[in-house]
Every structure is written in C-alpha cells, then in structure tokens.
Simulated scan of single mutants.
Amino acid sequence: MRSVWMALALTATLSAASPSGASDGEGAAPGSNPLFRDRFTADPAPLVVGDRLYLYVGHDEAQRDEMFNMREWLVYSTTDMKNWTSYPPIMKATDFKWAKKDAWASQTIQKNGKFYFYAAVEHDSSHPGKAIGVAVSDRPTGPFTDARGSALITNEMTPKGTHSWEDIDPTVFTDDDGTTWIAWGNRQCYIARLKPNMIEIDGPITEITPPHFEEGPWLHKRGGLYYLSYASLDRSTQRDEHVSYATAPSITGPWTYRGELTGSGKYSFTIHPGIAEFKGDWYIFLHNAALTVGDQNGAIGRRAVTVERLLYNADGTLRPVMQTSAGVSAPR
C-alpha cells in the first residue's frame, strides 16, 4: 500500500485541486469514478459471494498535511457494479491487540464457511515494523475478530528485506486444489502457502519479486494461467506508481513479466490493484487522489477508489487499462 513515500512524499506535489464537483455525488452516473464520494478510501480488495460483490477498503482520515491516518477498514457491496451499499466499519487496526496503528491494505477470502480478513498494520514494540494479521467472521460484512491473538507475519520472518515496512499488502488466493496462498511485500514480493486452518503459514516463505515491484500484489487465475498484478515503479523514469503484471503456468512460477497494465492514478503517488470476475465480466479496482470532500483535496493519503473493466487478449495477456471518470457507467 505504501512505498518509498518516506523518501518521496515530501517532494511529490500530490495535493493538487480536484476537478470541480468531484466531491458531490449528485448527478454522477451510477458506476462512475470515484465510486464513493463522501469519504476517502484506498487499497480496494473485491470478494464475490453469490450474486453480490463486496469491496474492502481502507479509510483515510488524514487532515491538512498529514500523510496517512488510517484507523479502520470499511466494506461496500453491489449487485450491479453501479449501486453500492455501505456498512459500518468492519474492524479497527487496534482490534489486533498486538498492533498499535495503521489500517493499511487488506483482503478478505471465503473458506470453510467463514470469512478470513488479512491486513497490514504496525506491530507494537515486541516485533517492530509492519506486520500482517488475520481476522475472521461468519459474515462478509463483519465484524471481524483477531483469529490468532498474534501476527501471522512479522518483520523478523523476512530477514532479507531492506526496510521495516516490507511486510504489507497481503493478497490471498485459493487454487483449484483447495490450497490457499498468501503473497505480500514492499520492494520484495513474498509468497507462502497457508495451512487449511487459514491462520498459519505452511512451509517456507519464497521471494518472487518481479521487475519494478513496489507493493500491492494481487493474485488471480483465469483458465490455466496465474496472474500477479502489482504497483510498480521504474525508479529511473517514474515518480508515481503504475500497475504492472506477470503471468505463470503455476502459482509457484516461473513468473513472466508482461509489462505495464495501467498508468498512475490521477494526483496519486500510490496505486493498488484488486481484480475480480463478477457475473461474467472482469473488473480491476484502483485508487487515485482526484476526490475532494468538504475542504479536503485528494493527497497522498486522501485517495478515492475507482473501477474499470478488465479485458483479455486471446493469448491470455491483459489489455492495457485506461483510467476514466466514467468507469463502468460508460457503454461497453
């Protein structure tokens, strides 16, 4: 979710004024971007349950020059990709008693009749640095409770990393054989198998870092091809993150880099893909910083979730995605 913002945020001009009326949903076509206009949301993670798509997001309450102020996670749902239902917050970062702050990127998956929620937070001083927790609920709308009483992944578990916030942005994926995998990372991308109980790592942690990987990995599968999409940054030419992707014949690789999928989000240093098939169509969720709420413009922390259709070529590669204000309200 976050990246080299510690080094770059002070030099990036990310609080540019948003388009007139961006904060006002009145008159906006259903399905146009941003999806939610009354608060700042980021790091979208879709989950399809029956005929409804649930979208899990972080809620940033940053004021003025604050970089991030993310305390809780939210969920919305839709049956038509155009009209959305909101719910009370599903969890706070500090509901993980071992965590002290930062409700960063998350993803929820359904298995064993329950819903498992994986999220990045800041661990307390017993395990300094970012960590990944797992919570559980009987319902996709929560509330969720800590499933372990301790972190699933801590900074000490990936000792080759270069910084304390590398263990963020979990993505979870269940393969056709029922095995569930978790991938995550910042600068380095890691993957590991989960035990059937969904709350323990099963086996080694492997590094699978693709070119220009920055953060925000997302795993999905279509046909016999596996996809790893992620926020990328070519440090020699780019200031803001883009989305790139790789493919593989197996979840364990080898991964082949396929290039960029999207450009950067408007006014936003970060970007974060979430991909799902819903009622026969594929969608990619992203975020930008083009929303104004009250007197607060979009900024590095104050982002807004968007959605676009995702299309495939005959060979399984993905067609480049143009980010639009029309979103899925536009004709096919």
Rank of each mutant, 00 (worst) to 15 (best):
R2P: 00
W5E: 15
M6S: 06
M6P: 00
L10I: 06
A12S: 06
L14N: 13
A17D: 11
P19K: 08
S20T: 15
G25I: 11
G25M: 05
G27W: 09
A28C: 12
S32M: 03
P34V: 07
D38F: 13
P44S: 10
L47D: 03
V49G: 02
Y56K: 02
V57E: 05
D60S: 06
E61L: 11
A62R: 10
D65H: 07
E66H: 07
E66C: 09
R71Y: 00
T78E: 04
T79R: 13
P89G: 05
P89D: 11
A93C: 07
S106P: 00
T108G: 01
I109A: 04
K114R: 15
Y118W: 03
A119H: 12
V121P: 03
H123N: 14
S125Q: 13
P128N: 12
A131P: 05
S137M: 07
D138N: 13
D138H: 01
D138F: 00
P143V: 10
R148Y: 02
R148D: 02
G149E: 07
S150R: 14
S150M: 09
A151W: 05
A151D: 06
A151S: 10
L152G: 09
T154P: 08
E156K: 14
M157C: 11
M157H: 09
T158K: 03
P159L: 05
T162E: 06
W165S: 08
D169S: 07
T171H: 01
V172W: 01
V172N: 01
D175E: 05
I182M: 09
W184E: 08
Q188F: 12
Y190F: 15
R193Q: 15
T206V: 15
E207D: 11
I208V: 15
T209H: 13
G216I: 12
P217M: 10
R222A: 04
R222T: 06
G224Y: 03
G224S: 14
Y227L: 02
Y227D: 03
L228Y: 12
S232Q: 09
D234I: 10
R235N: 02
D240E: 13
S244H: 08
S250H: 14
I251D: 07
G259S: 08
H272K: 04
G274R: 03
F278Y: 02
Y283A: 05
A290N: 11
G294T: 08
D295Q: 12
D295K: 13
N297G: 03
G298T: 11
A304I: 10
T306A: 02
R309E: 04
R309Y: 12
D315M: 04
T317A: 01
R319P: 00
P320Y: 04
T324D: 05
